[in-house]
Amino acid sequence: MLDLLDSGLTSGLHGWGPQLLSGTAMTIAVALSSFLLGLAFGAAGAAAKLSDSLVLRGLAELYTTAVRGVPELLVIYLLFFGGSGMIMAVAGIFGYGGLIELNAFSIGVAAVGLISGAYSTEVIRGAVKSVPYGQIEAARACGMGRWRILRRVLVPQTLRFALPGLGNVWQLTLKDTALISVTALAEIMRVAHTAAGSTRQSFLFYSVAALLYLALTTVSTTAFQQAERYASRGVRRA
């Protein structure tokens, strides 16, 4: 078992090293874009869930329940096979009848972002609710407007409360990117799969892939711990 790994590593991963590295860069790019897209969905979803409108609340509830209850792979298939059709239907409403093809990157980001957003919605909603209401009343008493309250009171504290949860969502998102390898986007998993197929060294390449993911998750755990420390720098520790 170890000599399989050893012979592979000494031969420079049979020449697949550079591809694996660019695959890692692709994984990071997809994960970051999806996570940011997910944050946007999450903020919108949380705002909808906390709004007074029954319709908005219902829609947000449907979004989080459906996306969190259906396998990620199924959501990816939906966008991979149906994404272009959806975009073309929307474009058709605006009078554009041409063919629109989405590339694997945008489909992947849309799919993983959609999933990430459903989890972010719950995290952000919980964080907003844990800002004490008295502080908002106090801000109002000081004569702050709605936007100023949002910017100065609500957002900074929501961020602090949301960080641990968002850290978990980031880990989920990072690991979910492995699933877009089914759309042939050249991220870690896809490169490992291709390399394993062409060299017949499955054990080696999937182990390397596992190590790469492990490195990414470990680094991001530390980064989120730092961010949490930074966000709670003004909070007295018991």
Partner: peptide
């Protein structure tokens, strides 16, 4: 710390 897909492929292939 690793995606389940990697674990499945590592075990199967």
């Amino acid at each position: 710390g690793t995606p389940l897909l990697v674990q499945i492929f590592l075990i199967y292939y």
